[in-house]
Simulated assay, not measured.
Amino acid sequence: MTVPRSGFGALLHAWRDRLSPADAGFTVAAGRRAPGLRREELAQLAGLSVDYVLRLEQGRAKNPSAQVVGALARALQLSRAERDRLYRSAGLLPPQDGTINTHVPPGVQRLVARLGDVPIGVFAADWTLVWWNPLWSALIGDPTMVPAGERNLARAIFGNGAAHAAMRPVRSERDEDAFAASIVADLKDAVSRYPEDARLDDLVRDLRGASGAFAHHWATATAAQHTTDRKTILHPEIGEIELDCDVLIVPGADLRMVTYTAATGSSDAGKLDLLRVTGGRTATEPSAR
């Protein structure tokens, strides 16, 4: 028996059918029948289980959280108006003006998906990771292994939770204390622009209580945006990789696109090529199923 779809589920299914797998970063095999994303592909992009996506589409799962709806909106590459419609169909208020925007415009998502030879992570103004491509996962580690609420660079640096435990060793060309201070200064800049954002307020309060280093930098740093750096990442399979780390601001969206690149022909570029082929796995490591 076919289960009738709810308004929310019907929107999910229609927008899933509309999105090109190539625009979402998937390789399209010959003879593929699905007109858009498969259900398991949407689940992978949104960090949800396939069964939960199925139940949402069929209307058997009720009252998805704002975090789930936001993840689905980003995965489906919705416009802002479509995102707001999805929130309302779930019985939720869309994100309000004056709060940090975690919506990634479709054009930015397509850009990240198509620049497959460059590790790219997209961060909100509070340094929450909201989008990434496969090479980012291979270099930095799979973000889906960290709970969505913990995927934050400041929590990785100063916290003591899952993000900190999952963070791979990274050495900045600058003094490490200066790098940490620059992230705090960037957060102070975000606070000045989003004084009513409750999530940002919770982040700062949590880290001031959990980390003496964060509290010190918060008391002494001057608000300023974080910029470029040169970093050495210790990868568990490839070893040390020295890369230029650039931070590109997306105008109008207040997002940060963080990219890692190496000079063409260098040994570090060769290591990135190896990561692109292997996905960061050794030849003997089994693929995820």
Score class of each variant (00 low, 15 high):
L12M: 08
A73K: 12
G159I: 01
T27V: 13
D117T: 07
G252Q: 11
A178G: 00
Q77F: 02
A210D: 04
A113N: 07
E57D: 09
A29V: 13
T99G: 04
A154P: 00
F26S: 04
D84V: 05
Y194V: 05
D51L: 07
F123W: 07
R281L: 12
A66V: 06
D273C: 05
G239L: 08
G59I: 10
E237A: 14
S65Y: 10
D189I: 00
R88F: 00
G47M: 04
V247L: 13
I233C: 01
A22C: 00
L135A: 08
W136R: 06
R289C: 06
L203K: 06
Q225H: 13
A30Y: 11
L200E: 08
P147G: 06
D17I: 05
V108L: 15
G121T: 07
I157D: 01
A262W: 01
R230Y: 03
H103G: 11
R33M: 07
V191W: 08
A113I: 05
R151C: 03
A215L: 09
R114K: 13
A73W: 11
G47P: 04
A221N: 04
M257G: 00
L272C: 06
S287I: 12
G70M: 08
A43I: 02
A73E: 10
V184P: 05
L111V: 11
L72N: 08
A221H: 06
A185K: 07
E285K: 13
G70Q: 14
E57N: 10
G265R: 08
E150N: 03
A29M: 11
L86M: 14
H226V: 13
P95A: 08
A43L: 02
L76T: 10
E40P: 03
A71K: 09
R289W: 05
D175A: 10
T27K: 06
A221F: 07
I233V: 14
R199N: 11
P64C: 10
E240P: 13
R18Q: 14
A190R: 09
P105D: 06
G7Y: 02
